[in-house]
Design a protein around this nucleic acid. Sequence first.
DNA 1: GGATTGTTTTTTATTGATAAAAACTTTGTT
DNA 2: AACAAAGTTTTTATCAATAAAAAACAATCC
Lengths: 317, 317
Amino acid sequence: MKSDAVFKRAFNDALDLIGNLPVEAPFPSENQLSVQLMVSRTTVRKILSAIRAQSLPAAGDSRPLIGAIPRFAEAETIPISEQVEKHFMEWMLRDNTRPGTSINELQLARRFGLATTGIREFLNRFQRFGLIERRPNAGWVFKGFTASFALELFEIREIFELRSALAFAMLPATSALWQKLEALRDQHTQLLEEIDTRYHDFSDLDSRFHRLINSAAPNRFIEDFFDIITLIFHYHYQWNKRDERQRNEVAIKEHLTYIEALLSRNPSIVELACRAHLASAKETLMRSSSRKTSEFARADDAKDPVTPSAAMPSASS
Amino acid sequence: MKSDAVFKRAFNDALDLIGNLPVEAPFPSENQLSVQLMVSRTTVRKILSAIRAQSLPAAGDSRPLIGAIPRFAEAETIPISEQVEKHFMEWMLRDNTRPGTSINELQLARRFGLATTGIREFLNRFQRFGLIERRPNAGWVFKGFTASFALELFEIREIFELRSALAFAMLPATSALWQKLEALRDQHTQLLEEIDTRYHDFSDLDSRFHRLINSAAPNRFIEDFFDIITLIFHYHYQWNKRDERQRNEVAIKEHLTYIEALLSRNPSIVELACRAHLASAKETLMRSSSRKTSEFARADDAKDPVTPSAAMPSASS
DNA sequence: GGATTGTTTTTTATTGATAAAAACTTTGTT
DNA sequence: AACAAAGTTTTTATCAATAAAAAACAATCC
């Protein structure tokens, strides 16, 4: 049976939406709601009737009184397939899963409280991140977030980013991307000013920035690769909060230099700034994860656990 | 219920194995068979008892008479999950599926004669090849093997191959890879001599060659990317047999030049040979597929179907 | 006549059940 | 003891069933 997370999420959103409606605005039509809530009209109707059932009855069939209708808990609004990701990560983090550990579908299913099919689906999608490997008829093996994983990741990242940055610098002055770049620069300076309170917002800005650069010469394989980076960083830093503010502040400044370099359109300057930023990002990742290294044992083929238990999943995108 | 393709494949293999046993050799133990047939001992026992049941009864409990025990049909020995790949490809080829077509799990399941779960699993794995896209709660879309797909693919391929070829050229003279390279060169010359009869053998040689080069500086992301190339070429050329012999002959000669360049260890010569080979491979692919282009309509975002119906799946590795 | 609401059909997400295959444990044999 | 065979338990692959969500169709309404 399908979970009704879609309904619950949209229900909560609908309450917000209706609550914030200007007093004079007409009540939105089902179609409009369907667009705004990003669900089918079928679901909109379900929401509407749920709302009507809970608001004061027979209030003249006009706009229902939303008042104090309770929302669904956050957790209930996340579809199972996405929860698996989180669970899986926790399994690795908390249980300190080591490279070489074999993954048991049934066990995970029981632990996560869902059917094996869900696990299977997740693992199949997650496979592409290069952290697990399939053994037909014999489950999966966790390969681990080892130092070599990180090194290999960064090697490719550097190749791709350099290629895209240079392509960006060559963009004609008329390209719309220049404006977007300037907008992003402004967001960076702004974030820098409020860094003390908003430093968490960096990770989103970071991935938007790198995606913008990639869009100068779009290539689906590069974009796919960036999903891996995004995932790794997301979970890695979620696990390791040390020096977050400081770390992000440095990165923002590097981005600003990098952006200026792009705006200068001078290839060698761009290359310099880009290389500098990536080197620093790599250093940060390797350093922050290797501190814990000594605690962990090593698996056969993994001679270099870096963030042994660390980092992981997400195959949702 | 699991299919028993593993058993059937191993059963057939076992008959061959036992049939070819030297007369004096002792009958292999269950454990030995398990290793040789690459299945668990559980399956070996099942095979053994199946064989005993069919061979002349009570022949003194020693070596059973294999004689004329019938084998299982080839088709039965392929696990369902692998069949899906083939089916899916045929669906695209035969039905001339166009970019933008939406993929319906239920429909495919019915057509392929299996449960939707199998389709789902396949699609999830196949996703990474960049030819389909998921729409949560609303199925999948076939993005098509368009010209831009091919161009993007080759852009990355060139970047990766160049990087690996240069790394290879820098390998110390003591590296074992030089010998392997020489061995591969010999296989190339040999194949060239027998090209008229053995030209199909090229595709295997090709992928072994490129994998060898990559192994100079191993990187899992590059290896993963090569799976995509292998897949595309496999199916693309399986579908398009035009000029196969001629095409392969040219490629072999290019490989030989490329190999000599590597052996020379001169980076600029390597780069030249590598670029030349890739350019020619790209040209071949684009040319052979674009011939049919005119037949096909174009989908929204795909302004350039190349081998519209062509090319595809395989998420088995 | 184009948007709105009401109704029916199709498709996706998720579960639980089960045979095949693998992994583990015990027993037997030299 | 050391390996082979027999027996048991666990795990994977696969199916069929079903509620939720989407899509398609039909009836209304300014």
